[in-house]
Design a protein around this nucleic acid. Sequence first.
RNA 1: GCCGGAGUGGCGGAACGGGGAGACGCGGGGGACUUAAAAUCCUCUGCCCUUCGGGGCGUCCGGGUUCGAGUCCCGGCUCCGGCACCA
Length: 844
Amino acid sequence: MPAPERHLSERYEPAPIEARWQALWEAEEAFRAEPVSRDGVDGEPPDAPKEYVLEMLPYPSGEIHMGHVKNYTMGDVLAHFRRRRGARVFHPMGYDAFGLPAENAAIRTGTPPGEGTRANIARIREQLKRLGFAVDWATEISTCEPQYYRWTQWLFLRFLEAGLAERREAPVNWCPNDATVLANEQVVDGRCERCGTEVEQRQLTQWFFRITDYAQALLDDMDLLVDWPERVLTMQRNWIGRSEGARVEFEVEGEGERIPVFTTRPDTLFGATFFLLAPEHPLVGWLIDGRPEADDVRAYARAAAAAGAVERGAGDRPKTGVDTGRRVINPVNGEAIPVWVADYVLMDYGTGAVMAVPAHDQRDFEFAAAHGLPVRRVIAEPCGSADDPLDGEAYTGPGAAVNSSFLDGMEVDEAKAAVSAWLEERELGEATVDYRLRDWLISRQRYWGAPIPVIHCESCGTVPVPDEDLPVVLPEVDDYAPKGQSPLAAATDWVRVSCPSCGADAARETDTMDTFVDSSWYFLRYTAPNYSDGPFEREVLDYWMPVDQYIGGIEHAVLHLMYARFFVKVLNDIGLVGAREPFARLFTQGMIYRDGAKMSKSKGNVVAPDEIVDRYGADTLRLYVLFMGPAADDIEWSDRGVEGQRRFLDRVWRLVASQEPGAPAARPDREALEGNEAALALVRKAEQTVAGVTQDIDERFSFHTAIAALHELVNLATKGMSDEALDDEAGRGALRYASQIVVSLLFPFAPHIASELGGSLGMERLWERPWPEADEAFLTAEEITVVVQVNGKLRDRLQAPADLDDAGMAAMARELPKVAAAIEGKSVVREVVVPGRLVNLVVK
RNA sequence: GCCGGAGUGGCGGAACGGGGAGACGCGGGGGACUUAAAAUCCUCUGCCCUUCGGGGCGUCCGGGUUCGAGUCCCGGCUCCGGCACCA
């Protein structure tokens, strides 16, 4: 559809223009990543740098929302920009299509979740296309299709082989509303991340991925993530929760049994005056069996179990507990100290047992105070002594060990090392590292997910489904409602199989995988979405990976982003991918608020992207979501702000419509502009805009200032339209050139209008045209404005030749009347001249 | 409590390496065009004083460094996010 030298209509009407260009891009498959020639593989270097630009894939709920628009527009700008700067760009799209909302809809309506999901995907695809995103649609994937989850299952089997997937009984989080277990990451403040219901603890046999084996690697490799936002790294560090300390074993008095504890303060071991067990600790029953305290302890443990996670997690609860009547021996001094059960000790951190040092731990201090237990200072405060009383609270600061035998006099760090060595020598403990991170619980008792590909056989145990039998396709069922076990269990014909190992009657696993498993590797599959001999084609994969720029919401800081990092590390370790980290650079966008709250259907404050597109056009919306403010910040939506961007595009339209259609004008000669200051200023502004917009996109993720720079250039050019000084050959040439620069730079943000206007200015197919480069000759002016200060206070400005020396500049400054008045009767003790900027006269 | 981020006009924000505070947009005032309105264009818009020349103050608060601080340093306040009875 070449339409050169077309006269533009007077009014800008986006709808027909946008439809036309979208149809062209679609017909041409304009944004296919060029198939990776094997040149990079066969030794011949690829002719262009590769750039994998990726935004987090959408979950296909009904419609896209403004957050999606902003996310995909940012990626789109970047993809266009890099392509025009010569990179080979890969910009795919897909759908994170398994998950609860579709299943819950299926429960309500009785129609299979796949139907609703596929309808939603079709709808979202249309919405994305309406926004003109330059996506390689040929790579589109959907995680709920068997040709995708076949490989999710295949990868699960590799994890299983590597010992990184395992089935075990463990206390797990159960959401009674969604009737499924949840990963630790999906529990927020003791509640289900999805529905807000308070979770319960249950002891269940479940599938886990051993992400804890990678805790240290996930921390160490953060060094490779230099372009990740600090807050995301902080959140992951917090979540992994590394603490250094020691394991110390306490022997039960009168028994051989030793109970280990984890402590970050082994230096205070001599101050341990009692010992605590979590109510769920497996040794509690054995310790109290047949003793007079047994009833009290059991009652206490039952009460603790009945208290919800939310209640028990509250930090300011009184420290309750009950004495078991038993004692353990402190290994460093042989002292027998009482064993209590207390619910502030958590079974799922450390060992579920704690040595209590009330003098130097606030919780232990409170417990000792509440139950009349002794407190012994073992760290002296700087300039303090061993006998100083505590000031109503535990002392947790620095100091030297006291009352601690061979540790006395050592500083905290020195004492930690010494006591760890002492314990290690006697096999009573050792220095260790503990992590807060728990293994990733991946089984779900729900229907709409990838079936876990294993078979349970009475004689062979857990048997993996052979690779050649994949995919294990989701069976059809009549009822999707969760009943405490997976709805898949109802598909009895599907469940009953013969054991792949011994042939005996066996049963399929009926749990499905957490949908975060699907999204932990989709970016690998994009590189060869239809490949059928494996989850990805190694050569193509290693060409594109890692993702050069990943863009998405901050809400995935610990969930998706940590799981995906874990996945790529495992796949790297087992030799399936070359990359060590999935996402070289990460950008987390801010949320769009309205009326002070996140947009949501329940609050009724949603602005539907379609409505804005209908009213103002996709280009206006794209421009506005980026112009709102810094891309990383949370920003309030403004209907008026949208109108402002539409006005801007109207102005651009009028500017270009006023130009004669025709071939591109070359950048005007500097000489040709001599004598026409206005024309020179306009061309200079155009060059400055090229430099500024380029830098804003390339280095700063600062789209709002890039757009503001375009506003400035358009404002100046628009004024020029009615400026007599530009009504000559040089002036018209400058205006035409400025218009072309506007359109060319505008293209990544507003590709439809820019393509349309480009056609009338002789710039066809802007998506393939090289990005403009600023001409240095225009960036520097011969005459500059210099600010003149007296004692740092602004007094006046002056115009001076750019090449005037410092002394000359200062002399000019002194002659300005306002400056002369300000220094009158005083002596100038210093002249500070900042070349090209300012003169500051220091007077006394 | 620990870790991270941020405080600038009526509003969103700009100022990139210590050098003109408030670009750009929204909102508001005034004007032109119009029978009128919309649209468009021009113009003003941080606060205070002003004899209309200009002057003073101003980037959360208090100190400091510097010829010069929104920017750097010290102390504090407030807000946002993460972790948290984590031993």
